[in-house]
Amino acid sequence: MNRLVWDKERRLLGSPQFTACYEHGRKRFTKRFILFVLRRDDGPSGLRLGLTVSRKMGNAVARNRIKRVVREYFRLHQYDFELPLDIVVVPKRNLEASQLTLALATEEFSPLLSRAKAEAAAS
């Protein structure tokens, strides 16, 4: 049975983990997000997610909405992509937090992660 929780092992917690993604990860662009994707060789399998939502995105309510929706997408799809990846998600300024829905997040992230999965299978 798969539990749909987002455990602490699935999060990027420290600054060194974020810095490694920024410096060594591959940049992926969608219409509303930038993703820094770094393949891990050690540690637990599965995605680890980090979010960077700056104050330029709006007030705390707007920033928290963005984080909630992005986390929910990854929580629901965590078993679709069992790859040892660290992903840092950064929203672009053109993203309106009030219009961000789970459907929009799925539209943005699914093709990108499917491509990452295909690339990992090929290598």
Rank of each mutant, 00 (worst) to 15 (best):
K27S: 14
K67L: 07
I34D: 05
P84N: 01
Q99P: 11
K56S: 10
L76H: 09
E96L: 08
E82A: 11
L95V: 10
L12G: 12
P91V: 06
K56Q: 12
A120L: 08
P84I: 06
K67G: 06
D7I: 05
L38Y: 15
C21W: 13
G14A: 09
R68A: 05
R65C: 02
A105E: 13
T101M: 05
T101K: 13
R71Y: 05
R3F: 11
C21Y: 13
R26C: 05
Q17N: 12
V53R: 02
A103F: 11
N64M: 01
E23A: 12
G43C: 06
K56A: 09
A118Y: 01
V88I: 13
S98Y: 02
D41S: 14
R63P: 13
L76K: 06
A20H: 14
Y73C: 01
F109V: 14
F29I: 09
A120G: 00
L13H: 14
R55Y: 07
R75V: 02
R93E: 15
L102S: 11
K92Q: 15
D42N: 09
L95E: 10
V61Q: 04
C21T: 09
L4S: 07
G50K: 12
L47V: 07
E82R: 12
E9S: 15
V70A: 00
P16A: 12
L102F: 15
R39F: 12
E82W: 10
A103C: 09
N64T: 14
A20M: 07
D86I: 07
R68Q: 08
R65V: 00
P16K: 12
L4P: 00
A118D: 10
R55N: 06
R68P: 11
C21L: 10
G58N: 02
V89S: 03
L49V: 10
V5A: 07
I66Y: 01
A103K: 15
A121K: 13
L104P: 02
A62S: 00
L112H: 02
E23P: 01
F29K: 13
L95M: 11
R10P: 01
G58P: 05
A105W: 10
F29L: 14
L104G: 03
